[in-house]
């Protein structure tokens, strides 16, 4: 279908991004845009919040913005 997603918002996908480089919440949201995942905005926020709580990434300030990251 035209609405089938080509990007999936999963813990594994988020982990891979955060291992690669520190990202802000906005950076992450850009990777999982609703038009790519087929999720609503609310679902995206809720699922991403649950994933980040589980991953419990390291945090650091870069240019006055909170960035999350993981080490392998």
């Amino acid at each position: 279908t035209p609405s089938s997603s080509d990007v999936q918002l999963t813990e594994d996908a988020v982990r891979r991004y955060l291992i690669r480089k520190p990202m802000t919440t906005k950076d992450l949201l850009k990777k999982f845009q609703t038009k790519r995942t087929g999720l609503s905005s609310e679902q995206t926020v809720n699922v991403l919040a649950q994933i980040l709580k589980r991953l419990n990434p390291e945090r650091k300030m870069v240019n006055d913005k909170m960035h999350f990251y993981l080490t392998e």
Binding site: T25, K26, S41, V45, K53
Partner: peptide
């Protein structure tokens, strides 16, 4: 739009602040 992205980022940060 960027404003929707801003709103989503703010909502996500609010969720995480409750946790952190």
């Amino acid at each position: 739009s960027s404003s929707e992205a801003d709103e989503m980022a703010a909502a996500l940060e609010a969720e995480l602040n409750d946790f952190m």
